[in-house]
Simulated assay, not measured.
Amino acid sequence: MTGATVRPVAIKLDDAMKARLKRLAEARQRTPHWLMREAITDYVEREEKREAFRQDALKAWEAYRSSGLHLSAAEADAWLEQLEQGHDIDPPPCHS
Rank of each mutant, 00 (worst) to 15 (best):
A16H: 13
L71G: 03
Q29T: 12
A25P: 06
A4E: 01
E48N: 10
L21F: 08
T2M: 11
R7Y: 12
S72K: 06
A10L: 08
R65Q: 14
P93A: 03
R28M: 08
D14Y: 04
A78K: 08
H95V: 03
H33F: 09
A19H: 11
Q85L: 13
W61C: 05
R50K: 05
K12P: 00
H95R: 14
S66K: 14
A52R: 14
H95D: 01
K22W: 08
E51L: 15
R37N: 13
D42L: 08
A52G: 03
A4G: 11
R46P: 02
V6Q: 06
V6H: 08
L35C: 03
E48S: 09
R50F: 07
V9M: 14
H33S: 09
P32R: 01
K49L: 12
M1N: 04
E47K: 08
S66A: 09
A39V: 00
T5L: 15
Q29S: 14
A16Y: 05
T2R: 14
M36D: 00
T5Y: 03
K12S: 10
Y64D: 01
Q29L: 11
H95F: 04
T5K: 08
G86T: 00
D56M: 09
A63W: 05
K12D: 10
K18G: 06
E45I: 13
R65I: 00
H87F: 14
R7Q: 09
L35Q: 00
I40Q: 03
A78T: 10
E47R: 15
A25Q: 03
C94G: 11
R20Y: 03
E26Y: 02
I89V: 15
E75D: 06
K18C: 13
S67I: 00
A19P: 02
Q55F: 01
P92L: 02
L21K: 06
H70D: 01
A78M: 05
T5V: 13
D15M: 09
A76F: 08
Q85Y: 01
E48T: 15
D90H: 12
W34I: 05
I89L: 13
P92I: 01
M17G: 00
C94W: 03
P32V: 02
S66E: 15
A74Y: 09
R30T: 10
H87R: 11
L83T: 03
H70L: 01
D42N: 11
Q55E: 12
H33D: 11
W34V: 10
F53W: 08
W34R: 10
Y64H: 05
A25S: 11
Q55D: 06
D77H: 10
